[in-house]
């Protein structure tokens, strides 16, 4: 079991979380060429090692998180809210 330190709820089992996927994907503008959309939707780096990914605390605070995790050892390097504004507000409230 991976234990994920949720910034809002504390450390919880990963079974409380839903897995999003690659957290580095940035969708292009709506009118961007089709090739850019194909790359964003279908192409993946598929890193063996530390990668940034999204998880949602579905059975908790329901927040989307951006997590750096090692895909070989499953060690978690960092966790922060996926939404920039929420991450910033959380930082300032500390």
């Amino acid at each position: 079991m991976i234990r994920i330190p949720c910034p809002f709820c504390g450390e919880r089992d990963h079974s409380e979380f839903g897995y999003g996927g690659d957290g580095t994907i940035v969708y292009p503008a709506l009118d961007a060429p089709a090739e850019e959309w194909v790359e964003a939707i279908f192409e993946r780096e598929n890193i063996c090692g530390v990668q940034s990914e999204t998880w949602q605390h579905v059975n908790g605070c329901r927040m989307w998180l951006l997590i750096e995790r090692n895909t070989m050892t499953h060690e978690i390097q960092s966790v922060r809210p996926a939404h920039e504004g929420v991450a910033k507000a959380l930082e300032e409230s500390k």
Binding site: M1, D13, Q51, E53, M72, H74
Partner: peptide, 12 residues
């Protein structure tokens, strides 16, 4: 359910 290169499974 999550990406992994480890050849070992999880308990859930």
């Amino acid at each position: 359910w999550y990406k992994s290169y480890a050849q070992r499974g999880n308990l859930p």
